[in-house]
Design a protein around this nucleic acid. Structure first.
Lengths: 329, 329
DNA sequence: CTGAAAGCGCTAACAA
DNA sequence: TTGTTAGCGCTTTCAG
């Protein structure tokens, strides 16, 4: 395993010159450059990131914090992050926190120990105080979920507006009894989405029925099933359900089918996220499409800018309501 | 940002002693140890992995190669890998190759450049020659998909047997006209699975009908839909489908439903992998369960052993046929 | 039990 | 245009 010294010796130049060739600096004469390149080829030399990283005090690694990899919502965002990161010669360290402060802390240690140059946090359950403290010394961006007034830049969508439009769509196709499957309101997005839900109802003169509002601990498939069980037991049964995640919606769909009811004839459903599977169900799911890939690239760009010491502004991206079979017979 | 020097000065000891404390070596007197620990606390010192890694010529990073993150099959494996890796103070670098040799090469460069200490390859489309060459110098393990006689250790299941059992199950519940949705036979697992399929049919005196064997380019949802379209057009229509991935099976299910047919009454379906979604469809999917999490932990253990210079043997793990609604009305 | 010093592989300031 | 050299932060050998 050759190192830069050996290449220098082989080429009959100094290590500085080799380094210059390696880093594409144009101040090297083409004759010397060729000598060096030959030596590199001959010795099968590969520069060590270890040495370079220490010297440059950087790891060129980006820490991505997600609650769990099994929520497909994050997949496309991650692809966006990765693509941009690679283009800038960064790589990503994908970290599942399981919303567990202990695991979270293990990962935070990676940036404290210089193993990562910055963090993109997508974990709604992240310890905000720790994050804020960390943000004083390290580059941090929040993606999708964020903390207001934390001073940490974020990229997200207008959750209230998205929710408002989803519910309005249900109203427009004739629904008045609309249930909301929301996650815990300790999460900002949950508070924003219920706000949009209520605004849509109120604007259309529909009285809010608290029985129709279900909170779930997580936003997974089983939670959707459980929540739907409750909804189906309601005396004056809703004719539509707006779920704040596709996984919840798919759980609801399954439960409705199991009970011999039909979507959308008996109950219409709107989900949120446009995960791949929202198109594989029967019927396909009407859902709020977040520009996930874009969100990923934007987050990555923000983080890398921040690492470079530039000033970074938060960004709100557009969303879109995708009407599919679960709301249109 | 304090470094080890400053800690040493603050504690009134040498950097060597600080290093010893950091690495939990017991040859330090408890009095000195306390002094050092106090200094560390006082200066808020965090040892830099960059320095340590260079010194130790290791990155403590494991490269995980997958074709795409959007195939849920890999998720649980990755969780297994990660859990074991973390327990050994390693972290993982998750890399999507998109089965693209160019991208693949970017990632291979990471190990060549010492940015990763080893590779777990799960990409069936990996360039085997490159992998073999790499394996001469670096620690490499193949997971799930592997190349025979490559000399590179692998962990996998007995694909032929798994396939055989799946098809036998269909035969036992009365099916004779069983279609196979297989992926391209350039992949070893595809060759193994068709072998199991044929063996099951032959053993039961069922003549193999080549019209019933469909090959798909990828093993995703859309491929399943397309393949099912073809199958539905066959004159003497099969009454059962064995798909080599759950995603294919879910695509088939969707297509069958779209055509007003019923699963399993009209057509039974068996999938492969037991991805999370196989339990969310309606009906739920009978599938071959691979011990994915286990496979991940085993692969990680094998890789880390290999990095440590130990000898590593290939391992075949058990699988299980999980009978659910799609084969039992 | 502790310290001095070398060195992992690289980059960049400075000198020539 | 090129070379010399210091040093990034750490671990470890060797001496004491």
């Amino acid at each position: 395993m050759a190192n830069i010294q050996q290449v220098a010796k082989q080429a009959g130049v100094s290590v500085a010159t080799v380094s210059r060739v390696l880093n594409g600096q144009n101040i090297v004469s083409s004759k010397t450059r060729v000598k060096v390149e030959d030596a590199i080829k001959k010795l099968n030399y590969e520069p060590s990131m270890l040495g370079r990283n220490l010297r440059n005090s950087e790891s060129r690694l980006l820490l991505i914090l997600i609650p769990t990899i099994s929520n497909p919502f994050y997949l496309e965002i991650i692809q966006g992050i990765e693509t941009f990161a690679i283009s800038q010669n960064y790589n990503i360290l994908l970290c599942e926190t399981d919303s567990d402060p202990m695991k979270e802390n293990i990962y935070f240690d990676l940036v404290r120990k210089k193993m990562a140059d910055g963090i993109i946090s997508m974990d709604p359950a992240v310890n905000v105080e720790t994050l804020k403290t960390l943000a004083e010394k390290y580059a941090i961006i929040q993606c999708s979920e964020y903390e207001e007034n934390s001073g940490i830049p974020y990229v997200t969508i207008d959750n209230e507006e998205a929710s408002y439009r989803a519910v309005k769509h249900l109203i427009q196709i004739g629904h008045k009894k609309i249930a909301l499957m929301n996650s815990d309101e300790k999460y900002l997005y949950a508070r924003q989405r219920i706000k949009g839900y209520k605004r849509a109802l109120e604007e259309n003169g529909i009285i809010i029925n608290n029985e129709y509002i279900i909170h779930t601990e997580h936003v997974g498939f089983e939670n959707g099933q459980q929540a739907m069980k409750k909804i189906l037991k309601i005396q004056d049964r809703p004719t539509a359900v707006f779920a704040v995640s596709d996984l919840l919606a798919i759980g609801a769909l399954k439960e409705i089918n199991t009970n011999g009811l039909h979507v959308p004839n008996d109950i219409a459903i709107v989900g949120f996220d446009k995960i791949d599977f929202s198109n594989m169900t029967n019927p396909t799911l009407t859902t709020v499409a977040q520009p996930m890939y874009k969100m990923g690239t934007v987050a990555a760009k923000m983080l890398i800018d921040k690492i470079r010491g530039e000033h970074v502004e938060s960004i709100i991206l557009d969303h879109e309501l995708l009407i599919r079979e679960s709301t249109s017979g």
